[in-house]
Simulated assay, not measured.
Amino acid sequence: MLPWIQLDTAKIPGGGELRLKRRGSEFSIMLGTNELMNSRLSGSEEALATLAYERIATHKRPHILIGGLGMGFTLRAALAVLPQDAKVTVAELVLAVVDWARGPMAEIYAGSLDDPRVTVHVGDVGALIAKSKGQFDAILLDVDNGPDGLTREANDGLYSHDGLRKSKSALTRGGVLGVWSQGPDPYFTRRLKDCGYGVEEIPVRAGRTGRGKKHVIWMAKA
């Protein structure tokens, strides 16, 4: 079996370090001993985009905010279903991840960052949400392994009552907040309902072929 080769590291603002690794054609992004994402497993990240679009398909000139660039699977899935007059803003906190997308992982991204519908915002997605009022038809969050601020403690605010209310304020009427998680979290479901969202908790397999571990995607309608 081919060995893993570490290609690069990147500091996360506020603490922590990401590691980009490669084994043959397979990529992995690690935080400590936790694998945040792997290029072989993209099914649930893609579903985050497609499930959201199904719920806003009647919106004209939709604008989607994706929190966390990752390996670009959610972005590519969104571009595949969105109309040509749509807009996609991708908020990525770590500049190096954007560099990886245009460098060693460019083949995976398949030119998606150059799509004219896409704008990349390097910065905190929570801060962008807080200053955006009624701007987005969907907000898709995949910045942690779930609603617990794994990558950095500051992300906890995204999933708090206050953070969820800010996301709701940033959505258009009938907009959707989508949140990816490696597993269920009944407390988060309750917080969403407390904030007035209509909540669906959807299990999705990690792999594209319906195999692999079950992840969870919340679709919360404003």
Rank of each mutant, 00 (worst) to 15 (best):
L82K: 04
P83M: 15
K87R: 09
K87M: 11
K87G: 11
V88G: 11
V94S: 03
V97W: 04
V98S: 13
V98E: 12
D99L: 12
D99G: 12
D99M: 11
W100D: 01
R102D: 09
P104F: 15
A106S: 12
A110H: 09
A110S: 14
G111R: 12
G111Q: 06
S112E: 09
D114R: 15
D114N: 12
H121C: 10
V125R: 06
G126D: 07
A127E: 14
L128R: 11
L128I: 07
I129N: 08
I129S: 13
A130G: 06
K131G: 02
K131C: 01
K131E: 08
K133G: 04
G134R: 07
F136N: 04
D137R: 00
D142Y: 08
V143M: 04
V143E: 00
D144I: 14
N145S: 02
G146L: 06
G146W: 05
P147C: 13
L150I: 05
R152A: 04
E153F: 06
E153I: 11
D156Y: 03
L158K: 00
S160A: 09
D162N: 04
G163W: 10
G163K: 00
L164Y: 13
K166A: 01
S167K: 03
K168W: 05
A170G: 13
T172H: 10
G175P: 07
G175T: 02
G178M: 03
S181L: 10
G183Q: 02
P184G: 02
D185K: 02
D185I: 08
Y187W: 05
Y187I: 05
T189L: 05
L192R: 00
C195V: 01
Y197W: 03
